[in-house]
Nucleic acid binder design. Structure first.
Lengths: 340, 340
DNA sequence: TTGAAAGCGCTACCAG
DNA sequence: CTGGTAGCGCTTTCAA
């Protein structure tokens, strides 16, 4: 807990020179810089955080608000939190966790006390209450996810629309005339922002391509197995020859198991594409075409935007959608010839 | 972003009176207090975090270090993080997230910059590198979990030893002479601190009671189903009439499914006790006796200790073990009469 | 290339 | 019960 004046003394220079040598905001001769660095090392000096916040205008802290709902999928959520923390540290920022019942309260608090330089908003709901708050405070905020009313906000996300179109087109191009979508649990279509986007893009694009389409939700962690099985059964009964899956790893596992039990091969009998999966699809029992949702991509971009919003030319508000990438793993083929 | 002098001016008092009125560290007449509160409200005043840190000696921030290993069980982990955050807020503290490859680096950084008042250590390994660091820094730290070398540290945890003894005794008292333990995935016995404690307490207590015992690991999330099934099969083959389960929800589900498939009823044919489960056992298909590991209990205590370690009479180092509680749900009965 | 010194906004001591 | 004010440790302007 040495202080800057001790470093200055030890190096035989003034306090300001030490400060500049460390921040690099003013040229310092090599000789003095070396002496200062030596003193810093020997004293184990590290600038006091409170003093920096007060004197400088940066706290080097980002808030991360995440209203952890009961139905949040923990592994996915953890990936995003971790990716955000890593990206932040890479930019010399720490993450302050805001997990409260009333999400806005914590946000308002850290904003008005100047504890953080910017706020990263996770787990965005379609009608998120944090939207209004974000507009009313000085502290810049970046949404990881797109709320319905996003006018004037900076939002980052995978381009779910384009991703879904990519998937529909792929199976349509392969010749499929009837496709199904196995989606998220029902609650996700009310509380979360992206499942509805996938669903509507799916239906719209299928219409545009003139192919039959049908949609089913999957269950939550307790009911995912039976619901996903039922979904597969119903979609196949309706004549679907290709399935898009928008779900967590468990749902994929169940879908594959159900197909296997029915003696159906992929892609021989049924084609399969995973849309916006944020887990490593290598854990599945067989390779599946995937258009991944990569937490690191969203979070890196969000942090970059947060940092930029503190600088000279701030990023302009709007949607920053990440272009989808299609990974071909061989799970899409032309539909089997109709029997009979 | 009003400042304290504006509040003072608006209320017609001195700066110090405002400060004392807000902190309560000095009596203030009701009349002036009311004027001050009014001014605070109207100006939307909220003290500057950096200034408080610098002037006061508290940052009102706790660090939470969690080296998120690949094999971490996300839902359990999230429960602990959430419980910690809630407990911290209740004490007017925020949580700074430290998730780095080299866990010690972040810890050292926030300690030496005075960014946090104390450090909460999660996901403790038997030979945790953070132990040495904790001893070398000024900032108090509280371990949630017990490392092998815990001399001089403040550690909080469920009393796994007592919990396991409670479970063994229960089935032993019911008349079982041969019991099995289905434990965590293999890796947990190397990287985590509590699974070995449950296992050794199980073996020791069974010896003391003079009953046969056998142990099996379960698998990770990908292999839990087959491994847990095998474990059940092997333990039953060895003659176990009661099973203790120390695992996540999935393991319990699989154990119950395997017993059901074998046509064995609980507790008619096999008795079952869940040891140190941190999930809500109500999600299981049938009620099971449980000695729960309650994240809130550990985290509340840890936060209390962290707060106390900043006060006048700091808690003395040592293990703060939470006494186990046995919840009887009717899954333990005397063993069936031996057939033949 | 370097120094001196004025704050940053608050807490808490010393006076009254 | 209330005020004045000296720092807390650093950043940054102004001077040299």
């Amino acid at each position: 807990m040495a202080k800057i004046n001790e470093v200055a003394e030890a190096a035989g220079v003034s306090i300001s020179t030490v400060s500049y040598a460390l921040s690099g905001k003013r040229p310092v001769s090599v000789a003095t810089r070396l002496r200062i660095e030596k003193a810093v090392r020997e004293l184990g000096y590290s600038p006091n955080a409170g003093a920096r916040m007060l004197a400088g205008s940066r706290t080097q802290i980002f808030a991360l608000t995440e209203p952890l709902r009961r139905d949040t999928h923990a592994p996915t959520h953890m990936s995003f939190v971790l990716a955000t923390a890593v990206a932040a540290r890479r930019n010399d920022y720490d993450i302050l966790l805001l997990t409260e019942e009333q999400a806005s309260a914590g946000m308002a608090r850290v904003a008005s006390s100047g504890l953080v330089d910017a706020i990263l908003v996770l787990d965005v709901a379609p009608d998120d209450e944090r939207v209004a708050l974000a507009r009313s405070i000085e502290t810049p905020s970046v949404f990881i996810g797109v709320p319905d009313d996003n006018e004037g906000l900076i939002c980052v996300d995978l381009d779910f629309d384009a991703a879904t179109v990519l998937a529909v087109d792929r199976v349509a191009d392969a010749g499929h005339r009837s496709i199904g979508l196995i989606g998220q649990p029902q609650v996700a279509y009310e509380k979360s922002n992206f499942p509805p986007r996938v669903r509507s893009a799916f239906e719209r694009r299928a219409e545009e391509r003139g192919i039959r389409h049908s949609f089913r939700v999957s269950g939550d962690s307790q009911t995912s197995a039976p619901m996903a099985r039922t979904a597969v059964a119903e979609l196949l009964d309706e004549g679907a020859t290709a399935l898009l899956v928008h779900g967590v790893d468990d749902v994929h596992t169940v879908v594959l198991a159900e197909l296997a039990e029915r003696g159906l091969s992929v892609p021989g009998d049924v084609s399969l594409v995973s849309v916006a999966a944020s887990f490593d699809s290598a854990v599945l029992s067989q390779p599946i075409d995937v258009i991944p949702l990569i937490p690191e991509a969203s979070c890196d971009l969000a942090v970059d935007l947060a940092v930029a919003s503190l600088g000279r030319d701030r990023p302009r508000p709007g949607l920053h959608l990440i272009p989808p990438v299609y990974y071909d793993r061989g799970s899409v083929a032309p539909p089997p010839a109709p029997r009979g």
